Amino acid sequence: MPRPSGFSYAQFDDGSVTITHRGRAAGRLRGARARKFLAEAAAAEPQLVMARWTGAYKHGNERAAREHPRNR
């Protein structure tokens, strides 16, 4: 499975975090959720963490895509 890419995040003075994907806003976290995200992103692969937190992670069609003739 290909690794997600193109994610980045910015932390603001009020403690909120905005996650962007290829320059477009994908999510905004505030309070305890933002702190939990920052701790997780520091400890693990940030691209995977951001993909999971924004919901852009394993949509269920990976098996079908793998078996498509174009991907063989």
Results as ranks from 00 to 15, higher is better:
Pro4Gly: 00
Ser8Val: 04
Ser8His: 05
Tyr9Cys: 01
Asp13Thr: 04
Asp14Tyr: 00
Asp14Glu: 06
Asp14Met: 02
Gly15Thr: 02
Gly15His: 05
Gly15Gln: 01
Ser16His: 10
Ser16Thr: 13
Ser16Tyr: 01
Thr20Ala: 15
Thr20Glu: 14
Thr20Phe: 10
Thr20Pro: 07
His21Met: 07
His21Gly: 02
Arg24Tyr: 10
Ala25Arg: 15
Ala25Asn: 09
Gly27Ile: 03
Arg28Gly: 05
Leu29Val: 05
Leu29Lys: 07
Arg30Pro: 00
Gly31Asp: 06
Ala32Ile: 09
Ala32Tyr: 06
Ala32Leu: 12
Arg33Asp: 11
Arg33His: 05
Ala34Thr: 08
Phe37Tyr: 12
Phe37Ser: 00
Ala39Pro: 04
Ala41Lys: 04
Ala43Ser: 12
Ala43His: 06
Leu48Lys: 14
Val49Ile: 14
Val49Arg: 05
Met50Lys: 05
Met50Cys: 02
Met50His: 01
Arg52Asn: 11
Trp53Gly: 11
Ala56Phe: 07
Tyr57Val: 04
Tyr57Thr: 00
Tyr57Leu: 05
Lys58His: 11
Lys58Pro: 00
His59Lys: 14
His59Trp: 11
Gly60His: 01
Arg63Leu: 15
Ala65Glu: 09
Arg66Ser: 10
Arg66Gln: 14
Arg66Gly: 04
Asn71Tyr: 09
